[in-house]
Design a protein around this nucleic acid. Sequence first.
DNA 1: TGTACATCAGTGAACGCGCGTTCACTGATGTAC
DNA 2: TGTACATCAGTGAACGCGCGTTCACTGATGTAC
Lengths: 213, 213
Amino acid sequence: VPWPKEHKQATRERIVEAAAAAFRRDGTAQVGVSDVMRAAGLTHGGFYTHFHSKDDLLADALSHAMADAHTNLERLGGKAPGGLLDVTQAYLSPAHLNNPDRGCPIAALGPELARGKQPVRETLAREIRKRLNELDAVVPPETPDDVRKQHTAGALACMVGGLILARGMRKSERAAFLSDCQAFLKEALTAPDTGRSRVGKETATRRRHAHDQ
Amino acid sequence: VPWPKEHKQATRERIVEAAAAAFRRDGTAQVGVSDVMRAAGLTHGGFYTHFHSKDDLLADALSHAMADAHTNLERLGGKAPGGLLDVTQAYLSPAHLNNPDRGCPIAALGPELARGKQPVRETLAREIRKRLNELDAVVPPETPDDVRKQHTAGALACMVGGLILARGMRKSERAAFLSDCQAFLKEALTAPDTGRSRVGKETATRRRHAHDQ
DNA sequence: TGTACATCAGTGAACGCGCGTTCACTGATGTAC
DNA sequence: TGTACATCAGTGAACGCGCGTTCACTGATGTAC
């Protein structure tokens, strides 16, 4: 083998990484294969030695973006995620709002991915399920199954919808809307009166007032 | 004037209506001016006597789609919306899931609209604010202002995110996820223990079990 | 009442342009002798 | 150790194609006489 074995794979990952950022920032339709290759420091001609098609790249970029967002959001919220509430507060942060290229690809591309071709839709469905399972694992084990399912579904829905809506609003209204979503989830997930689920209570108040634009 | 005065306006509205449906079904980038004109029973050449550009049409189609979705969702939930909870239950329904072309344009196109050009972004921001105000008006007047703001923000976020996520999942998982989101919102918005907000309680249970695919 | 006319909504060919994809090639690399 | 060679990652010109937009035109309409 004339080339180092890991060289091609490393190049491929550079392309995927560039694509994951560009797609999330500008949308899948506005970013061309040439744009991605240029961002990866290559020319467009070599693209098809790495991928069968742009859709093939998109599916890979989606998986990469999910892992990437997960990493970046953990960095935001301090080392330990703590509970479901902590995850939601980090997600609904101005930092996430203002950096879609390093954030959740569902919030950035969800609807257009759902309209995509089969491999893309399959990857999206798999990643959503994975995300729900991750959130599920963060809820205290003593929580009843039905409550747990409702909390993970409701929390993820509120995160994705909240971020999308905030990004669609006027700049001056965004921070307040994110705070309202955070407060709503704090109430809904803590639910001290039902006594069934008490999640991440200790850090919620602190985060609620921490804005960093 | 050689033509009836309302004729041109009626044609223009036919184009906007066709565009509002096509954009929501297939996305703004996948639907061409020719597609829209053909759906309206016209040829593509006449488009620019009605609109300055495709973006101009998109802004109009967005406003039209919001009003259209509002009408259709009211039809789903019986005549009287009742409360905030009722609105959310109608929104998170299989009927809405399966008919994006007649549903909420934020759930169908939100992220790509937020990346659009200024007039489109302005229209999106205005429509989101309008929607929040409509939801606000449906919350009982005795509800404290901060709770009201959190409920409307959280509910809308959960609606939009819930629908987007459900559309991204495998068909077999969608209905259960929607139900989980509905149950989450029922808990969060009813919140019987805080005693501050008791919204749409009477119809929630019935709706919760009504699926129509 | 009937005819000639001016208006303008709608037509369809044509325009650049950028896209995804293909392909003949180039040149840096590890290997064989 | 040094040289010729086979390999293949990457190059860049070229391909159809469909898009948004323009424009010379057509023909249905209400109006003037």
